[in-house]
Nucleic acid binder design. Structure first.
Lengths: 193, 193
DNA sequence: ACCTGAACACCGTTCAAGT
DNA sequence: ACCTGAACACCGTTCAAGT
């Protein structure tokens, strides 16, 4: 039975999650679909386009939270959504960060951060700066976790190396709080609430 | 004349700067040195090791600024140094970010950020969180510039697309200020000075 | 010590041709 | 429309052998 573009992208997502970004090759994906590599180019123009579509699938698994108008809570919720979305798939953070930095996808997710930030009342340029700062923080942090770099080895204050402690949310929340407070100092209504 | 490891790494840095990270392959580097690809493995165990060494070369071009004890000024200066270091070579940000996230190098640079932050008096865990937040901000921001994504297209508030405006330092400085202020709220002496 | 030669197991992409 | 077959121009790495 013939495949459609959506089948190819869905299968690519499965390969990503099962084997990682390094093993998500056009040839392996083709083999997985029971087809020759050249057949993929009937559905997609390039591997770049495939990666963009897969990244968008990762981010479409769950929709971003609907804004309530409280910028700090909305922004925190949107960042948490982005984090959870990329952590839900193997190498999700690396994929989304790469795709976004080459402008191949993930636009809706970035726009969701900008939208959440809106009611803070920053001027356009500063809103963009704040959104990019949050974007890099969330993806960089998730990337550290997923390449696991066991989190504190990029990390590692000399002398602090407990073997297996998850250090899960607290580190993310504290870092996010840092940035949100910095934004809060510049928001229309000082003190981010 | 035979080569030494340092020659190989120096040549790799030249290839990086002239042709970009995608073209920095073992085969191309070997050809550039007038040698067969297999000869490189006499000097380096793997391409990963090469990339780690090249990243360290990028960061060794200039030493990080010496701390003065004023954490906010020192941290800003160290971030500026990191930014300038990676921007000084083609694809420098991508290289350093990748190498760091896989734990292959760039440790001294990260430690310099931690050291600058020291006098802020945060506890160890929060110092690490703050340092990683800054690290991701600086490299993510530089990456956006270098993949030029023309800066505001990860970016692009809908309706704001002037064609060719550099938007150089201000955006970086404002983003950095955001994070530094967030850190300042948690520093021993509130208000980051 | 430093390198060659030859191989292994891969890549992304194009394009004429089949059905 | 969807795919095959065959090719092109590449990858990183290993290993026996040369000097």
């Amino acid at each position: 039975m013939p495949h459609r573009r959506a089948d190819v992208v869905a299968r690519a997502l499965a390969v990503l999650d099962a084997h990682g970004l390094a093993d998500l090759t056009m040839r392996r994906l083709a083999a997985d679909l029971g087809v020759r590599p050249s057949a993929l180019y009937h559905h997609l123009a390039s591997k770049q386009e495939l990666l963009g579509a897969v990244a968008d699938s990762v981010l479409a698994r769950r929709p971003p939270p609907a804004p309530t108008g409280e910028w700090a809570a909305d922004t925190a919720a949107t960042c948490a959504w982005l984090r959870e979305s990329v952590l839900a798939y193997r190498d999700g953070a690396e994929l989304v960060a790469t795709v976004a930095s080459y402008g191949l996808g993930a636009r809706a997710a970035y726009d969701a951060v900008v939208a959440a930030l809106g009611p803070a009342g920053l001027d356009d340029a500063l809103t963009g700066t704040a959104a990019r700062t949050l974007w890099h923080f969330v993806l960089g942090h998730a990337l550290d976790e997923q390449t696991h770099l066991q989190a504190d080895s990029v990390g590692a204050l000399p002398g602090r190396d407990d073997p297996r402690h998850r250090r899960p949310e607290p580190d993310f929340d504290r870092g996010l709080g840092l940035v949100l407070d910095g934004i809060g100092l510049r928001a229309r209504s000082h003190g981010h609430v």
